[in-house]
Design a protein around this nucleic acid. Structure first.
Lengths: 180, 180
DNA sequence: AATCTCATGTAAGTAGTTACATGATTAT
DNA sequence: ATAATCATGTAACTACTTACATGAGATT
């Protein structure tokens, strides 16, 4: 149940319409909680029904008209409650690691090219994160909110760094020394 | 569509019953592709219907009787096809990073205790992975399959190492220096 | 008028989760 | 015989994905 809270966070940072939220989920927030526009519109409807957000008054007919939302006090309370609540880490699901495990059984044929492609994608993402860090967190003091946001970005940078290193290491084993 | 392939991999490594698979998904395979027994039984049924696996002949009445499965040639082919096929990396979803982002907006009250708990859990997982590495991959030469399995385990070790380090760093900021 | 883009949605399907049901075997 | 555990399942629900629909405003 993280999507509503992701949306509440995004709306608290800045009141937005569905499409604007969708755009922000393609960068920023979406780096660690992705969502499509269909999910977002549905969830906006629920949050409004539940009284956690409201449409900014600007006389909107139903369709095709931009509709912006802001967070109500009940929404902020719910987000604070959720943030403080204890949550178990969800089990990981990583298809790439699964594929390597499968390759250990059925062979590595055809796998190398896709590993190289993944390496490129992770390198690109890492470069993007580093640009954001340079732009948004120049050396110097951060405020409390900035410090936390910087910490989250560092997680992204370190994770992408890990993947690029791990993939390079994996590729060193391809096609691999002859089997014993 | 990774669960059927996770099951095929597990069954190729060793033919098993549903419950045995469930146990193996609680360790080993489950470290990077978790599944509950309900998912596994449902998927075993589908795989059997599709002719990718079959129940080992041992006259099984319907319920309460152990039923083991093995992979058929069509199943091995499908796994090899899937392993070699190009796949885009799925977007990440990390509730903990989301919570830190939310905390940047609504405050960090109540968050520290859960971060400490997560740190403990990751430390335990890391210790477990290291034991497995010592036991299953002692220094020396690995075969090709072993090399790949070791590589996958190293990913687990490195990821857990990252999380423990990141969480320690995050906790250094709690309750945090006074706000600017 | 036709077309393109912006913006909001509906519908259907798949995957995963949670709660519960039931038969078979073993231990007390 | 009762209870605990092993083993296999059903049912209902939630979250996510994919494909499509539709209105409004701008462009040609």
């Amino acid at each position: 149940m993280s999507l509503p809270h992701a949306i509440l966070t995004a709306l608290l940072e800045k009141p937005s319409s569905g499409l604007e939220l969708t755009r922000r989920f393609d960068r920023s927030i979406g780096y660690f909680w992705s969502a499509t526009h269909q999910q977002i519109y549905r969830e906006l409807g629920r949050l409004e029904t539940d009284g956690l957000i409201r449409a900014l008054p600007a006389e909107q007919p139903s369709r095709g008209q931009k509709k912006s939302y802001e967070v109500l006090p009940a929404g902020r309370d719910e987000l604070a409650r959720w943030t403080a609540a204890s949550q178990d880490p969800k089990p990981h699901r990583d298809p790439l690691l699964l594929r390597l495990r499968a390759a250990a059984v059925v062979g590595t044929a055809g796998l190398e090219a896709d590993l190289r492609r993944h390496l490129q994608l992770h390198e690109r993402q890492l470069a993007e994160y580093r640009e954001i860090e340079e732009r948004d967190f120049p050396p110097g003091r951060d405020g409390t909110g900035d410090r936390l946001r910087h910490l989250v970005l560092r997680a992204g940078i370190d994770l992408e760094t890990f993947w690029t290193q791990w993939l390079r290491r994996a590729l060193e084993d391809f096609p691999g020394p002859p089997e014993g």
